[in-house]
Amino acid sequence: MRCVRVWFKKMGMSRFVSHLDLMRAMTRALRRADVPLWYTEGFNPHPYITFALPLSLGMESLCESMDMRIEGDSTNEEIFRMLKDNMPPGIEIVKVADPISDPKKISYGDFDIFFDCVDNGDDIVKLINEILSSDELIVQKLGKKGRHKVLKDINIIEFIKKYSVSSFNGRVKLNVVLPAGSATNINPSLLADEIQKRIGTNANYTLIRKQLLTENMDLFE
């Protein structure tokens, strides 16, 4: 038995597949692919699968990873070939590799936020730069107080590790690095919602997670 890390993209309509549903979809895909899975030895045998960091519903991603335990001596390349044609639509296997980093070490996420805009892209770029260069941008985050869930005010500016804004083809792209992981996690939609409100348009936005980073800003791999 050994552990492999499967890297995949979750794009398009598959972004509306929730984390729990993804677990189920992946388990079925693995069964269809006839991957030599290792099953737990308890009363109700099931494959052992974990995801590095759950992705919010509605967000696309280029950097999803899933760890699983396999039996036998198939190589990573063989596992890749078994998997690649058996994925549900929208999910694309990128590679199969040995795990290097510990998922507990994930500290940051690198995100692109795309705002649809019409013709005033440069104005919006300027506006976003103004907003983000100020000292304070208060947003409400769902947090815990004891056992209860409460809305907390946080200054999201304090959490932004770095950002850049650009515009092209009627879209504005905000690239931002925010805390992600089990210690602190800031959902980029908090920032996106607030900016959307401030720029005063109903411009829809889409979110994509590009990379996960460790504490020292090294790539999670």
Partner: peptide, 17 residues
Amino acid sequence: KILPLVQKPGRYTGGEL
């Protein structure tokens, strides 16, 4: 555009296996 606004959007996307 409306899918992010509703419960369980996976019901409305189609494209299942």
